[in-house]
């Protein structure tokens, strides 16, 4: 399972946002994408998830397991997203938020067992009935990650998910996210401002279009 970004160029009004991007992220790997504000980091994620406005022109290809994504609607891409805001649904409790991510064709019993298992893995057992407004920032972030993974995506996009957390929380949540991605064995693309978020030896510098050492 891999995510291939093949000579991708995004432009608006004929002006390229960044140099051509070419990378392959293999399963269980997390590729970090860095660059200054406004250089197009989130735009790449929107292009991969299929939520990019058609005001932008896209050249190049994106493949997930050899499946071309460009002409697929968002709901058929099987790509999960995690934003810097947790975006937990405010009208659902924790359990309902997680249940929304699970496929429809499995029984409620199985769904609940998966939810409890997921909550336990995040150290949040007993939180299933909690209103999301009563959770701390760290707890909300972990629920948000669990929700994204329960949908069993084939790849996951991380749009600065650690940037709003305080230093201590950031560290533990980053570890939690990285471990979960490895466990799920799916490719992930992480956009960040912070070099400390860098996973592995190198990151992709969007401004220069080159891989650099972390």
């Amino acid at each position: 399972m891999s995510l291939l970004i093949n000579h991708l160029k995004i432009s608006i009004n004929g002006k390229s946002l960044f140099p051509e991007v070419h990378m392959e992220i293999t399963k269980g790997n997390i590729q970090t994408l860095m660059g200054p504000s406004g250089c197009g980091k989130s735009t790449i994620l929107a292009a991969i998830s299929g939520t990019l406005s058609t005001n932008f022109s896209i050249a190049g290809e994106i493949f997930l397991d050899d499946l071309p994504l460009m002409n697929l609607p968002t709901e058929e891409r099987q790509v999960g997203i995690l934003f810097q805001d947790d975006l937990l649904f405010p009208h659902f409790n924790v359990c309902q938020n997680l249940m929304f991510a699970l496929p429809q064709n499995i029984s409620k019993k199985v769904k609940l067992s998966r939810i409890f298992q997921a909550l336990e893995s995040a150290g949040l057992q007993g939180f299933d009935k909690r209103d999301i407004a009563t959770l701390s920032g760290g707890q909300r972030a972990r629920i948000s990650m669990l929700r994204a993974l329960l949908a069993e995506p084939k790849a996951i996009l991380l749009d600065e998910p650690f940037s709003k957390l305080d230093a201590e929380l950031k560290l533990s949540f980053r570890e939690f996210v990285f471990n979960k991605i490895k466990e799920m064995n799916i490719p992930a693309l992480l956009v960040s401002h912070d070099r400390a978020d860098c996973y592995g030896d190198q990151y992709f510098d969007l401004q220069t279009g080159q891989f650099k050492q972390c």
């Binding site: 968002t74 709901e75 934003f83 975006l87 649904f89 991510a101 949908a151």
Partner: peptide, 19 residues
Amino acid sequence: YDQRFYDVALTLSGSKWKS
């Protein structure tokens, strides 16, 4: 309305109508 909620729901449920 923060359309990202809908986008997230779309990636999770795979259904426009459900989202």
